[in-house]
């Protein structure tokens, strides 16, 4: 079964079998966003607590394949306690590894930002750590949506949190 080991690295199966930060957070104060992959039926719910400029806690609920679940689990480890800016860099780096370059994450016209033109760190300089294990997904293009589901849902949750933080009522 050549190729499968590239996709299903041991650390991925470990996160699938023993997902980290699984569960729910109380809403409010947490922000909750549901993400769907309409192609395969995967559903994921991301809960984030924020303190105005960083994610202080995160939980994942829902169901999905090993790639979507492992990516979500690794993501929670990678982002907990990180600033929105750091998470934005990490997200862009992760998507870059998945061969996705999106303008909504700081680039223009779908390209990565020019070096030095933005404050964000270039994608190839961001340390992905365990997330590197998901690099093999690129060889299986239909699975890229599985790997990015949690990240897209997280981005939406952070957007909502920031929008709320910008509101006059303020937050904790």
């Amino acid at each position: 079964m050549s190729g499968l080991e590239d996709l299903y690295r041991e650390i991925i199966l470990d996160h699938y079998r023993t997902p980290r930060n699984r569960g729910k957070l109380e809403t409010p104060p947490a922000h909750k966003v549901e993400g769907f992959n309409p192609l395969c039926g995967d559903e994921i719910t991301v809960y984030v607590d924020t303190d105005g400029d960083r994610v202080t806690d995160v939980r994942i609920d829902g169901q999905g394949c090993s790639i979507s679940q492992a990516s979500a689990s690794m993501m929670t480890n990678a982002i907990k306690g990180r600033s929105f800016a750091e998470i934005s860099d990490l997200t862009r780096a992760f998507k870059s590894m998945m061969s996705i370059h999106e303008n909504e994450l700081g680039g223009d016209d779908g390209r990565e930002p020019e070096p030095g033109s933005e404050e964000s760190v270039p994608a190839d300089e961001v340390k992905l750590g365990d997330l590197e294990a998901l690099r093999g997904v690129v060889k299986f293009p239909v699975r890229i949506k599985c790997a990015t589901l949690a990240w897209n849902t997280l981005a939406q949750a952070i957007d909502e949190a920031r929008a709320d933080d910008g509101a006059p009522t303020g937050s904790s």
Binding site: M1, G3, L4, L7, D42, G64, C65, S66, Q69, F140
Partner: peptide, 12 residues
């Protein structure tokens, strides 16, 4: 084994 993973192995 999630059906998506199962189908991936079957494809091999």
């Amino acid at each position: 084994v999630h059906p998506h993973d199962l189908s991936q192995v079957l494809d091999q």
